[in-house]
Amino acid sequence: MIVEAVGLRKSFGPTSVLEGVDLAVPEGSVLALLGPNGAGKTTIVRILTTLARPDEGHATIAGYDVVREPAKVRGVISLTGQHAAVDDNQTGLENLVMVGRLMHLGHGRARQRAQELLEQFALTGAMNRRAKTYSGGMSRRLDLAMSLVARPRVIFLDEPTTGLDPASRLTMWDAIGDLVRDGTTILLTTQYLEEADRLADRIVLLDKGRITASGTADALKTQIGGERIELYFADEVVARKAAGLLGGLADGPLLNLPSDGTAAHLHHVLDQLRDEGLLPSRVSSHRPTLDDVFLTLTA
């Protein structure tokens, strides 16, 4: 486990923000911390990136303790926070070279690495413009590029696409996807279920400082209840007859039927209906979305 946290607790004054959080992230995987505002996502990131101390519990990154060996931890991680951390009055290139020099790459190597990253994040054309002229999406990309200068082993992304328009969000997702393919470990926080679903191998659902559920997106969806089949009939009389045969809940011409999601089950249902002459006009199959998971578990 490249990121490991056990029993993290943190209060700000009388307000308890984290109430015992355990995390384990295998190297090369993507973990999403999903939760509403105030769930404690950012606090977890701040503790793991050495910016805050836990009141209780401990955490290691690549084996280094975040409290006792902060300098070693900082050598293997990078953080992209909620607000683009770029100097508006420096150009994209200058911002990147500055970080490279702070990582002690040496001036020439810092410049070379900056050029690579500008290329990778489609910012080469804008590299000599001051960052304050960049669009929101460009700033975020520059921000992410700055966090990659030293090829960190673990990247923390705190709400990487909050406030971006849909097109910029897609570009950002592609950029993050590239990092995943390169084998970088990523821990990201998000309020967007779609984002967690799309980017993460595992999702940890956080509410009021506690983990309420965790697992793959699929596992979480299965956890809150099964799939269902919706059958549309000619009218409600037929629907009621079908309900008498198969069970389930008739609602007007619509019959809602629990299912295990397999083709065999659907086949079996349709066979039975055909035998009774009750064939539906339309069939659809529904899996719960992460939104259902989210609303069910944080309600």
């Binding site: 990136t49 050495t50 990078s78 990582m103 700055m146």
Partner: peptide, 13 residues
Amino acid sequence: TTGMIDRLRSLPI
């Protein structure tokens, strides 16, 4: 007050 300080502080400097 901007994110800059977190960036600089999470660097080994």
